[in-house]
Simulated assay, not measured.
Amino acid sequence: MIRKLSVQDNDKLMEYLKEEASMNLFIIGDIENFGYDKDFMDLWGDFDDNGNYRGVLLRYYNSVIIYAKGDFDVFGFADIMKGFECVEVISGKGGVTEKFENIPGLKLGERRPTYLCELKDSSSLAAISDVSKVKKAGVNDVDRIMELWSITSEFSPVTGSTRRSTKNKLETKSGRVFYIEENGKIISSASTTAENSVSAMIVGVSTHPNHRNKGYATLCMNVLCRELLSEGRLLCLFYDNPVAGKIYKSLGFRDIGIWNMHKN
Rank of each mutant, 00 (worst) to 15 (best):
N183C: 10
Y53G: 02
F100I: 09
S63P: 08
G138K: 10
P113K: 02
V243T: 12
D130T: 12
N213G: 06
L219V: 05
Y216R: 00
F238W: 15
A21K: 08
A137D: 07
L219I: 08
K133Y: 14
S199A: 08
P113N: 03
D37K: 10
G45T: 06
V142T: 14
S174M: 09
G29D: 12
D240C: 09
L43H: 05
K214L: 11
V158I: 15
L170K: 09
S191N: 09
R59V: 06
Y248R: 02
L13F: 05
T192Y: 01
I2V: 10
L5D: 02
L108C: 01
M81F: 07
F77C: 04
F84E: 00
R164T: 15
D39Q: 13
G51V: 04
E19C: 12
R254Y: 03
L43E: 05
L119C: 06
N196A: 11
G83M: 02
N10W: 00
F47R: 10
I151P: 07
D130R: 02
R112E: 13
L148Q: 08
S22R: 15
I145D: 09
G257Y: 02
A190P: 03
F253K: 00
L219K: 14
D49Y: 09
H208M: 10
R233V: 12
L224D: 03
L219E: 14
C225F: 14
A217E: 09
L235D: 14
L13M: 12
E154H: 03
M14P: 06
R112Q: 09
L5C: 01
K214A: 11
L13A: 01
G257E: 02
F155Q: 10
K173S: 12
V203T: 05
R212D: 08
C220W: 11
F72I: 01
K69R: 04
D141M: 13
T159F: 15
Y53T: 07
T162G: 14
L17S: 01
G257A: 00
G109E: 04
V134P: 11
T207P: 05
L219P: 05
M221C: 14
R164N: 12
G252P: 05
R112A: 04
Y60M: 13
A78P: 07
V177F: 07
G51L: 07
E118I: 01
L148E: 11
G76A: 08
L57V: 08
G94T: 02
L5P: 04
I151V: 13
F47Y: 12
N260K: 00
